Amino acid sequence: MDAPNPRTPSRWEELIAEDPAHSTRYVDRFRSLAAEGHDIVGEARLIDAMLARGSRVLDAGCGAGRTGGHLFAAGHTVVGVDVDPVLVAAAEADYPGPTWLVGDLAELDLPARGVAAGFDVVVCAGNVMTFLAPSTRVAVLAGFVRHLGPGGRVVTGFGADRGYGFAEFLADAETAGLTADLRLSTWDLRPFTVDSDFLVAVFSRSA
């Protein structure tokens, strides 16, 4: 019998393998920013504005929980998934209430873990898309589509010059079954232009 294909590690996991303290510094950085009064929930405010109260949100690549935590506090049901157990543990400690899970977005199957699909929004913020293994990008986006409910939307945001061109990303999203309904250059609704160095994209499931 052939051996199963080895799992492809994400770029984030490769980074952690090179520097095991990276995750802890990441958690400490956002805790410090929050303690100093900095705005760390701009992404969550945009998502909240798109939703009816009590909607279901999948925080894909949830990190230490700042986006999903804010959305839970705003009255939504939130499931957060991240490949990094250090970040998930921080989310559980700092933002109790949502369901926080360790998992690989390239193998996302929440129903198999007892969590129903049918999300109103899948949000993937914090440059998560650029930390994926390139070979898994379309699979990750297709997984988002499978987890959407009727009328659900996928919202992603990441910066330029991170190894994933915007045109390539939009083509991958189309391949995965998504239609780009809106492109912005910031989470506070500034329009996207050819010179923008950040892309926030709002997608619906393709017809």
Rank of each mutant, 00 (worst) to 15 (best):
R205I: 00
P98T: 05
T136E: 15
G177K: 01
A142K: 13
L33D: 12
D84I: 01
I16P: 11
A34Y: 01
N127E: 09
G68P: 10
L110P: 00
G126H: 13
S206Y: 02
V102C: 13
S185K: 10
A89S: 13
A52Y: 05
G163I: 06
V202M: 14
V140K: 09
V86F: 05
F158L: 04
L46C: 06
L148Y: 10
F158G: 06
V57S: 03
T130Y: 10
E107G: 01
T156S: 12
F72N: 14
V123N: 14
P191T: 02
F198I: 04
T193L: 00
D197N: 12
A180R: 05
L108P: 08
F131L: 11
A17H: 12
G126I: 13
R183T: 14
R146G: 09
A34H: 11
G68E: 06
G97M: 03
Y164I: 03
A176Q: 08
L87I: 12
T99K: 09
D109P: 07
A3N: 01
L178C: 00
W12M: 01
H22K: 12
D109F: 09
T136W: 06
G114F: 07
V128T: 15
T175Y: 03
H22R: 13
D188S: 06
T8Y: 03
D48M: 04
L178I: 01
T99G: 07
R66L: 11
P9L: 08
L184V: 02
A201N: 06
Y164K: 03
D94I: 05
G157A: 14
L178T: 00
A142S: 15
G68C: 06
F72M: 08
S10V: 10
G165A: 15
A74L: 10
W12N: 03
G65Y: 04
D172L: 05
F131I: 02
A207G: 12
T186Y: 12
A52T: 09
L58A: 05
V83E: 14
E18V: 13
E13V: 10
E107N: 05
D48P: 03
P20A: 12
V27L: 04
M129V: 05
L170A: 08
I47Q: 04
D19Y: 08
Y95R: 01
